[in-house]
Computed example of a mutant assay.
Amino acid sequence: MNKTTRFDTREHLLDTGELLCLQRGFNGMGLIELLKQAEVPKGSFYYYFPSKEAFGVTMLERYFARYHQRLQAYLDDHQGNSRQRMLDYYRQSLSNCQESSFAGCLSVKLSAEVCDLSEAMRSALHAGSVALIATLKSTLDKAQQQETLSRDINSAACAQILYTLWLGASLQSKICRDDTPLQNACDEMTRILRQV
C-alpha cells in the first residue's frame, strides 16, 4: 500500500465517519456501519486507528483544524475593518446553515454527547474551541487597533462570549429547525461589538 493510498483511505474513513456522526451522533455510528459505508475492511480501520475513540479524536482534530483554517482565511482576507469582517463571517455562517437545512456542525452534534463519555474527545473539543476563540480575540484586538471597536470591550471575554453565543444558537436552531436563534445571535453580536 503506497503512501497516497494509505492517506486517501484514512481520509475517506474520516469523511464517512463525519457524515455518519452528523446523522446519528458518535455513539449511534456503529463501526460495522462505518466500514460498510466506507467500503473499507476492518483491518484497515485498525491500521489507522487503535480504537473508535481514537478515531473520534482524530475526526474532531481534523474538523477543528479545517474550521480554524476557514475562519482564519476569512478574517485575514481583507484590508479593511476587522469588526465588520467578523460580523460578516457570522452572517455568512447563518446563510450556510440555512442552505444546509441545519445539518449542523460536528462540534454542536458531539459536544454534549461525548464530553462525559470520553476524556480524550472532550479534550479535542476543548482544544479546538480554544484555538477558535484565540482567533476571534486576535480579530477583536485588531478591530480595537483600527478604532472600529470600543476599547472598553475586553477582547478575551468577548471572544469567549461570541463563540458560546454562536454554539448555543446553533444548537437551538438545530432543535427547533428554525434559523431565528442564529439570526438573534447575529443581531446580538452586532450590539455587543459596539463601534467607537
Score class of each variant (00 low, 15 high):
16 T>Q: 00
127 A>R: 14
166 W>K: 04
139 T>P: 00
100 S>R: 15
170 S>E: 05
16 T>K: 07
172 Q>Y: 06
101 S>K: 15
110 L>M: 10
193 L>V: 09
132 L>F: 11
97 C>F: 10
79 Q>G: 15
114 V>M: 12
189 M>D: 00
190 T>K: 07
118 S>A: 14
136 L>F: 14
172 Q>G: 02
62 R>E: 05
129 S>T: 08
82 S>G: 06
163 Y>F: 08
124 A>D: 01
33 E>R: 11
71 L>S: 03
168 G>H: 08
148 T>G: 01
180 T>L: 13
147 E>H: 12
66 R>Y: 04
48 Y>S: 10
175 I>P: 03
74 Y>Q: 13
187 D>Q: 10
30 G>E: 03
142 K>Y: 00
153 I>E: 02
161 I>E: 00
5 T>S: 08
12 H>M: 09
60 L>G: 03
121 M>N: 09
31 L>W: 01
156 A>G: 05
21 C>R: 04
168 G>M: 07
130 V>L: 15
42 K>H: 13
45 F>A: 07
130 V>Y: 11
32 I>G: 04
50 P>T: 09
96 N>V: 11
164 T>S: 10
25 G>L: 12
95 S>K: 09
51 S>Q: 05
94 L>I: 13
109 K>T: 07
112 A>H: 15
58 T>H: 04
49 F>L: 10
180 T>W: 05
62 R>G: 14
137 K>R: 13
59 M>Y: 04
35 L>D: 00
54 A>L: 02
31 L>F: 05
85 R>I: 02
43 G>E: 01
121 M>F: 13
138 S>C: 03
129 S>Q: 15
149 L>I: 02
136 L>Q: 04
92 Q>H: 11
37 Q>A: 14
179 D>C: 12
120 A>F: 01
163 Y>H: 08
37 Q>W: 00
147 E>Q: 11
56 G>D: 00
188 E>V: 13
1 M>P: 06
73 A>L: 03
18 E>T: 15
132 L>C: 08
7 F>Q: 11
11 E>R: 15
87 L>F: 09
31 L>P: 05
43 G>N: 10
95 S>N: 14
85 R>N: 01
40 V>E: 01
168 G>C: 08
73 A>I: 07
151 R>I: 08
137 K>P: 00
173 S>Y: 01
2 N>I: 15
107 S>D: 12
186 C>T: 12
80 G>A: 10
53 E>C: 09
190 T>D: 05
35 L>G: 06
62 R>S: 11
139 T>R: 04
5 T>M: 07
116 D>A: 15
80 G>I: 06
146 Q>P: 02
72 Q>H: 13
74 Y>E: 09
22 L>T: 14
136 L>P: 00
113 E>S: 10
